[in-house]
Simulated assay, not measured.
Amino acid sequence: MTAPDDVDLDRVWTNVAAEVWRRHPGRLEQTAAKLLRSPGLARALLTTPSLLAPWLIGSTLVLAIGALVQLGADQPLVWLIAPAVAAVGIAYAYGPGIDPAWELACSCAVSDRLVLLTRAVAVFAVNAILGMAASAATLGTTAGTHTAQLTFGWLIPMTAVCTLTLAVAVAVRSAAVGAGAGVAAWIVVVLGRGALDSTASSPGLSPSPSAGTSLAGAVTDPNLYLLYLAVAACCAAVVYYVTRPQRGAQ
């Protein structure tokens, strides 16, 4: 049986396929679309690899273990692992070979830079909240923990490490390289600061006022905060420059 001449079966079946495969966004996606004023950006945000349930569960378990392990008196391990966990999450938030929606996002009207920055901010915020919760859980078991250390001690280093990781990942277009660079830089800072504390407390040397005996000096020494902020600002500028729209790009 042949179709009438005035009926385009290809168009009909295209409409049927579009209806079958049409997605109906949930309440969370609808709320994100209203807040972001962009359904496409909301969809891109909810498909962030490091914001999916398996990744969030893994991050939560790692931070929970960090809350239980103590480096020393009043110094939970979560202060040191929170920046690294957030940095790895940001590195794997967006990029070719990592993001299953990479090709789709590149073809959308929403710019790559906006998708990248929205996802990075969301990943940072989620990990900051998880880290704050883990740190708050240690308040009942560690005496003398200061609010300033809880609020700024690891959030400022987390900002620096995350922006460094993002800058490297965007520049070389590799999430693995970015994550490795961020974690390696953080390990160097932690070990280097610990080595300075050990040297300052050695016999024959007068200890500095901020010197300690644990690795937590990288997050408890306020003298490092300006350095962390400077690194974060420089790396943010690199990300902004690398993700600029290319002239003549299709």
Rank of each mutant, 00 (worst) to 15 (best):
F124W: 09
L130N: 02
T145K: 01
A230F: 10
T2K: 04
V20T: 12
R119P: 04
S50N: 01
T14I: 05
P25T: 05
T243V: 07
V88Q: 04
V12F: 12
P209S: 14
Q70D: 10
W55D: 07
P100W: 12
P209T: 13
N127A: 14
T31E: 03
P4L: 03
V188W: 03
V16T: 14
L205Y: 13
Y241A: 00
P207Q: 03
A42V: 07
A181W: 03
A133E: 07
V110Y: 11
V177L: 13
T48I: 08
R43P: 03
Q70F: 05
S206I: 11
T163N: 07
P83S: 11
V126M: 08
S59N: 13
P222T: 10
P83D: 10
I129F: 14
G26H: 01
A33Y: 05
P76N: 04
L51N: 05
R37V: 10
A169E: 10
T147C: 01
A53T: 15
R247I: 01
V189A: 15
G192H: 10
A237C: 14
M132F: 15
A143C: 00
R43Q: 02
G66W: 07
N127C: 15
Y241C: 00
L150D: 12
A93C: 06
T118R: 06
Q246V: 14
T151Q: 12
W186G: 00
A211T: 11
M158W: 05
Y240P: 00
A33E: 06
P49Y: 04
K34L: 14
G192R: 10
C235Q: 02
L226W: 10
D197S: 11
V88Y: 04
I187L: 14
T163V: 08
R193T: 15
P245K: 12
T138V: 10
G40M: 05
V172A: 07
V126R: 01
Y92E: 02
T48F: 08
P222E: 11
Q149L: 07
L191A: 12
T138L: 06
A185L: 10
S198T: 06
G212R: 13
A67H: 00
Y92I: 07
L104C: 08
P39N: 11
V239S: 08
Q75W: 01
A249W: 13
V115A: 01
L41W: 04
W13A: 09
V231A: 14
V242N: 02
G131Y: 02
I129E: 05
R113P: 03
G66L: 09
T141H: 07
S201G: 07
G89D: 03
